[in-house]
Amino acid sequence: MMNWIRKPFEKLALTELYDILQLRSEVFVVEQHCFYQDVDGKDVKGWHLMGYQEGVLVAYARLLPPGLSYAEQSIGRVVLKKEVRNGGLGKLLMQESISASHDVYGKKPIKIGAQFHLKKFYELLGFEACSKIYDDAGIDHIEMILD
């Protein structure tokens, strides 16, 4: 059973913020060996979608307003705990993220900077590539948009 929680930064409890930063670090920095500035100043301006199972944060995405990362609203820092991958939770997380982003920022296009190896996954959700492949912290990415 997944417990979804959606909050703006200023409403996050300290334990929720800790859970978010721990999961992002666990996956992006340690697992993917990606050394980058995760705490980039955008968290404070966005909403945070958290998926808890049995009190453990296992799914997360950051929802940003138009004009911050892109002209469009965006979804980023999409992450699943390793133990829950390949069970359809990624699709559910993105569906929840899209719905939450539209609720918060309006039903307008959403732009993402996707890891290139996940391009087909995002295409199945309706996203279309809108850039060439580019390097972001040593990982190939591509910008994609959902109209």
Rank of each mutant, 00 (worst) to 15 (best):
K107P: 01
G126V: 12
V58H: 14
G87Y: 01
E123P: 00
I145H: 08
A13K: 07
E26K: 11
W4P: 15
V104C: 15
M2D: 03
D38I: 06
A61D: 05
V56Y: 13
R62G: 08
S131L: 00
G87M: 06
A137T: 12
L57N: 11
M94D: 03
N3Q: 11
E54I: 09
V84I: 09
D147Q: 11
V39R: 05
D38M: 13
G55W: 07
G138C: 13
R85F: 05
P109T: 07
N86M: 09
L92V: 08
L64V: 13
G138M: 10
Q32D: 04
Y18R: 05
F116M: 14
I112H: 02
Q115M: 00
L23P: 05
M94E: 00
G126H: 14
R24P: 02
D40P: 09
Y60T: 15
L89G: 00
R77W: 01
I133R: 10
G87T: 06
G55Q: 15
L23F: 05
E31W: 15
D140C: 01
D103F: 08
C130R: 15
I98L: 01
I98F: 00
I139F: 04
V29N: 14
K111R: 12
L118T: 15
G87D: 03
I20E: 08
A100I: 05
Q32A: 07
W47Y: 15
G138T: 04
D103H: 10
E96N: 03
Q115W: 11
R77E: 03
V29M: 03
G126M: 10
Y70P: 04
V39H: 06
T15G: 02
R6D: 11
G67A: 13
V78D: 02
L23A: 02
N3F: 06
G106M: 15
R24L: 10
G51M: 07
G46A: 01
M144P: 01
A61T: 14
Y60F: 15
D19R: 00
S101G: 15
Q115I: 12
L17I: 07
K7V: 03
K108S: 12
R62E: 08
S69K: 08
E143N: 14
M1W: 03
V29C: 10
F127L: 07
S69Y: 02
G138K: 14
V84S: 04
Q22F: 06
S131H: 12
